Amino acid sequence: MKLVVVSAGLSVPSSTRLLADRLAAATALRTPADVRVVELRDLAVDIAHNLTNGFPGRDLADALGAVTEADGLIVVTPVFSASYSGLFKSFFDVLDKDALAGKPVLVAATGGTARHSLVLEHALRPLFAHLRAVVVPTGVYAASEDWGAEGLPERIERAAGELAALMSGLAATRPAVKDPFAVVPFAEQLAALRPSG
């Protein structure tokens, strides 16, 4: 199975990436999966170009393909202005609208204060529900004071267990996804538009 982690952390080192890595490790312990991390910081220019010209660069196309082909996703964003970062949202804006349909997704966020923890319910969960993903029940928010404190490791373990269970259960039933970059001859596209009968 393929587990893709999308991290929108901007700094190095990044608490967002740290949370992403802990969630990925906990999930991989429960279900065999090849883990790939997509660092959005490295794709920022390609994402901006894709938004303005409609074409992904090679690196962005590779990342979008990995997300599309994944059996499960872990998505982690820092909180800016009480919501996900603009870079995080822009990445999912350029993703094909059907790429996440039926795909298990674990949502997580980091922030400076616990007061922003509802970002999981008011921003991330609605975004991925709109994209028709299957969002695991437990989201993970880590404020600055959560690192090294009680509670965070347990939330990570619970969320990872839920994602692993969904990945294992849904992988066998998910239909194959068409290659979003495949070239379809015009005659075939036209034939598909004609009414049958």
Rank of each mutant, 00 (worst) to 15 (best):
V79D: 03
V75S: 00
V136E: 01
A160I: 12
V75C: 02
A149Y: 08
P153L: 12
L95D: 09
D96K: 05
P78F: 05
R115W: 10
G112E: 10
A123D: 14
S90N: 15
P126T: 07
G161F: 09
V119E: 02
L106H: 02
V107L: 10
T138S: 14
V136H: 01
A99R: 05
V94L: 06
L106F: 08
R125T: 08
S81Q: 13
A129C: 01
G111S: 12
G148N: 08
F92H: 03
G169A: 15
A129S: 12
V135F: 06
A101R: 15
L95T: 09
A149I: 05
A108G: 11
G161I: 10
S81N: 15
A149R: 15
L170H: 01
F92M: 07
Y84F: 12
W147S: 09
A108M: 02
V119M: 07
S144N: 14
P104I: 06
A123I: 00
E145F: 09
T113L: 12
L124P: 01
A164G: 12
F91I: 09
T113H: 15
T110S: 11
A142M: 07
D93V: 07
K89R: 13
G169W: 00
F91R: 02
L100C: 11
G102L: 14
S81H: 14
A101G: 10
L131N: 08
R174S: 15
K103E: 00
L152I: 12
A143E: 07
T113F: 12
